[in-house]
Design a protein around this nucleic acid. Structure first.
Lengths: 237, 237
DNA sequence: TTTACCCTCCCCCAAAATAGGGAGGTATAA
DNA sequence: TTATACCTCCCTATTTTGGGGGAGGGTAAA
């Protein structure tokens, strides 16, 4: 006998095309008897990929209005690792309230559960299930399927990663140890002079590392270099 | 009848103390019949917390030598979201080879499986199971328990997060919309002048935002502010 | 052995960022 | 109503970075 999880996992696409992802979200939506299932990700260079059952009108509206920048789901999930029941999020701002009303107008259900997933190179993905339901019914649904959904979300993401790396494989720039140290110190707020002192070298030398790192990271300035190093994961904290 | 997963989850501590975490790793190790189970995390301000069954000699050695900065497991996991079988990692550098030999000397098994977990505020955690085994046996073990371990790792992390927020709750600084925009542009590599133009305001005004954001973020300079904003998740990409 | 990459040091000068200060208008919340 | 926080603009001076250039010695791989 198949478990519920195995049943869900059957929906994960076997072939890496956007169409298969789309079909998988639809299949999963039907299996779960929900209104919407959405998988969406953004990598560190801002490339996006998404598949889901939201109406194309809503997707267009969302992109057009750049709702990514104020959607409480995105924001809440970005600061969290645990799956989020939408009811837990902060909908108190005026913009958030208006956003929610508009979303429901476009056929998005009032209840949602989103699993944030983080990947290599600053990749950030969301796996969302959505429905119109009472709070109690939704609680019960999450209790029953929450853990399975985590696994399903991760399987989705694994597929998406294969897709990405096959397509536009981002080579992680390899910084030399001294370059890494230099960038790390700057990320901690040290000035060049302080970092140089900390590393026991002249500031001139340190500058050479910073510039080498900047070029390797394809960054426009030091701040950009640190930002890229952090979001691609080449430096820690 | 209890499922394997339920059996494992029984080991998750019900009370938030370091001792309970320690006990949980030991209980899990025994249930899984492994040599080691380790849970470890670092948050964005560098605070650490760990519980596990490694010998204290190895932990001391590891900290003393600052192996965190060259451990291929840490490095590999930091750039990945999927669980990692240690055999897949890059052990080719001289330092990595020496590290592995030393680890085994200190009683660490030759096989490992580590689940990277990312949380809010730049938190990064690792949940590791470790054993001495042949490649085939280890593969079989992972096939059997890999998914359960993901859930267990996440449950561990959930507990650790409760622990942290209860203890030294880091209030996420709340930046105003304009401050967020300003910091975001800088993170993208814009100069102050470019960012100001992009936002349609004077460079002077933009500077006020940057400085306000710097103060809120407790940052020493702009680069530090961007680094903190990224690692605490207040800005996206 | 040559090639390549890494580490270290130095010069000069223009451009950008930082550290203080102050001022006025608009919301929103206590 | 009175704070409080936000948005916008301006000043001066100092410090820090950025963009060029060049040079020597080390290690490691091809």
């Amino acid at each position: 006998m198949k478990t519920t999880l195995e049943n869900f996992l059957e929906a994960i696409p076997q072939v890496n095309t956007l169409e298969h992802f789309q079909a998988a979200t639809e299949e999963l939506r039907d299996k779960l008897e929900l209104e919407h299932v959405v998988y969406h990700w953004v990598n560190s260079v801002g490339e996006r990929f998404g598949a889901g059952t939201y109406s194309s009108e809503w997707v267009d509206r969302y992109l057009e209005k750049d709702y990514l920048r104020m959607d409480p789901v995105i924001f809440g999930c970005f600061q969290r690792f645990t799956p989020v029941n939408w009811k837990q999020l902060d909908w108190s701002t005026k913009a958030a309230k208006a956003f929610l009303v508009e979303a429901i107008d476009f056929g998005v259900g009032n209840q949602g559960y989103t699993i944030p997933i983080r990947g290599p190179h600053g990749q950030f993905a969301l796996f969302t299930v959505n429905n119109t339901a009472s709070d109690a019914d939704w609680e019960a649904f999450i209790d029953a399927h929450g853990r399975d959904l985590i696994i399903v979300g991760h399987e989705f993401n694994k597929k998406a990663l294969e897709f990405e790396t096959g397509d536009s494989a981002l080579p992680t720039p390899s910084l030399s140890p001294r370059e890494l140290m230099a960038i790390s110190y700057l990320a901690k707020g040290f000035s060049r002079a302080q970092a140089a002192q900390e590393m026991g070298i002249s500031e001139h030398t340190l500058r050479v590392y910073i510039e080498a790192a900047r070029h390797k990271l394809g960054a426009l300035n030091t701040t950009h270099a640190v930002a890229r190093a952090l979001s691609t994961g080449v430096i820690i904290v």
